[in-house]
Amino acid sequence: MSEHYNFAYLDEQTKRMIRRAILKGVAVPGYQVPFASREMPMPYGWGTGGVQVTAACLTPEDQLKVIDQGADDTTNAVSIRKFFQKTAGVAVTERTTEASVIQTRHRIPETPLTEGQILVYQVPIPEPLRFLEPRETETRRMHALEEYGLMHVKLYEDIARNGAIATAYAYPVKVEGRYVMDPSPIPKFDNPKLSNSPALQLFGAGREQRIYAIPPYTQVISLDFEDHPFEASKAPHPCDLCGDEGSYLDEVITDDQGGRMFVCSDTDHCESRREAGHTGRLSPQEDAA
């Protein structure tokens, strides 16, 4: 750990301010709490909000896991993990089960979370009504008065244009029967995992200066129509490496002849299964020689 930084980079007053925002967010599930977002040593859009929330939650005993689209080894995940290794000296892990704090960009791990874990989301645009109503004053009033008809207008437009609700990520949800919330750009496949989760879920939007939260065991419902119910969709394939039929998949183009493979987007989940002996269509064959 470098001596030049305060623990987890932010100074104690800032962490205190962020913790207050988090506590308020936990007290009012789904409500966007404004906070004085700091400049972080990374560009906006790279998880400045999530990093500040993580910094405010970390203790020296924590085990940190960072994922980006489910993967532990992509640029965003690696750089944020290194950042906290350097500034907080905390232990890091790639195992979902071992982690006490998980910072994520756009996925929820496949392994069910447990009590005591904290899942921190990086949020680009926290306001679910933003693209329907550009005025912040008006969207705040709509939240305050629970006027959420407009959210259904968006879903209506989806069906009118595409025949089905085509929103595949950042699918709007209603938290504990009150606030409509943007769950950050997670695939809608992950939406059911938001509800009734034993883990604490925190959302940080750095540029937009908002923090919101879903406390453990909170009801989260994805909005839909009676005749077009919500569907958690994924590519209709098993994973080509571990054979899992139930996990969310990435499609990888493998050549210019139309070759492609589907692999788990959650790398830790895929590796654990492979270690346990599961194989998929493209698994390297055991040499029987």
């Binding site: 008809g149 407009l150 259904h152 207008v153 209506y156 069906i159 129509f225 009676e226 077009h228």
Partner: peptide, 12 residues
């Protein structure tokens, strides 16, 4: 449809 949805219509 917006006004209908605003007063709670949820059947597309």
């Amino acid at each position: 449809g917006e006004r209908l949805m605003a007063v709670g219509a949820r059947h597309y």
